[in-house]
Design a protein around this nucleic acid. Structure first.
Length: 258
DNA sequence: GTCCCGATGT
DNA sequence: ACATCAGGAC
């Protein structure tokens, strides 16, 4: 057992889990980076759970730049969850175009109806209630809890998964390990931390050609070496794709780089 | 694991 | 033409 693993304590509901020194440093650096480099997005300037919910459903498998104009148009058309519930589902589908994955507007409309009918028009804040709504999975439930209700909920999307796997694991790990780490990292006020983590994955620790040269985590990142810029790396600076880092010669199962 | 969607970059 | 990309349901 390493020194850092000895620092780990079981999570308590009321108190924040103890972080290792590396984990604490990561959180501090991430929040500092976010204050300077974080994006200004419309769903970060509202406290309306309905608007947060709309943004998060739109953001499922869809990038920010494509969501931005449709987010504004959609809320102009359906300013409240009651307005969305009253609409014809076929019309909601048309408004949704061209975001894609067109089952999402149907499910969002269904969620609006469920919330109006069974939750008195209020988006639920409890994880179990959110997961009971078709169209809300682990990611969206965490996002609504953290961003709309300021709960201490982890948010693991493809960006967060990539960042944590690279920085702390150095290779692909099962989802439950990534979620457990994301929960351990959460500071007392998780809103900015979660937004920062996603911005960081979208702007610095990108899937292809990550910007290691301007990455504040380089000194504690377990993948820094892998991208050809390691401490001893006097060799050519190539931001290769991790999947390509190893030639076609049979990569070891379960050891794939992230 | 598989399917769902469409804009964008190479 | 083809890979890539802020998930979730089955």
């Amino acid at each position: 057992m390493t020194h850092e693993e000895k620092c780990i304590r079981p999570r308590n509901e009321r108190t924040a889990p103890v972080k290792t020194p590396s984990q604490a440093l990561f959180v501090r650096r991430l929040l500092r980076w976010y204050r300077r480099q974080g994006r200004s997005l419309p769903w970060r300037r509202t406290a309306d759970p309905y608007r947060i919910l709309v943004s998060e459903v739109m953001l499922q498998q869809t990038q920010v730049d494509r969501v931005l104009p449709k987010y504004r148009e959609f809320l102009r058309r359906y300013p409240s969850i009651e307005a969305l519930a009253r609409a014809r589902v076929g019309e909601v589908r048309e408004v949704w175009y061209p975001l894609g994955y067109n089952v999402r507007p149907v499910r969002l409309w269904g969620i609006a109806n469920e919330v109006v009918r069974r939750h008195e028009g209020r988006v639920p804040a409890e994880r179990a209630a959110l997961l009971g709504l078709k169209g809300i999975g682990p990611y969206t439930a965490g996002a609504v809890r953290a961003f709309a209700f300021r709960r201490r909920a982890a948010v693991v999307d493809t960006n967060v998964r990539r960042v944590l796997q690279r920085v702390f694991f150095g290779r692909a790990r099962p989802d439950r390990q990534v979620w457990a780490l994301a929960e351990r990292l959460l500071p007392r006020h998780p809103y900015d931390f979660n937004q920062a983590l996603m911005d960081f994955g979208a702007l610095v620790c990108t899937a292809r050609a990550p910007a290691c040269a301007r990455c504040p985590m380089a000194s504690l990142c377990r993948s820094y070496d892998r991208f050809g810029r390691g401490p001893a790396g006097v060799r050519a600076v190539r931001a290769v794709r991790p999947e390509r880092a190893r030639p076609a010669a049979a990569p070891a199962p379960g050891r794939r780089a992230v």
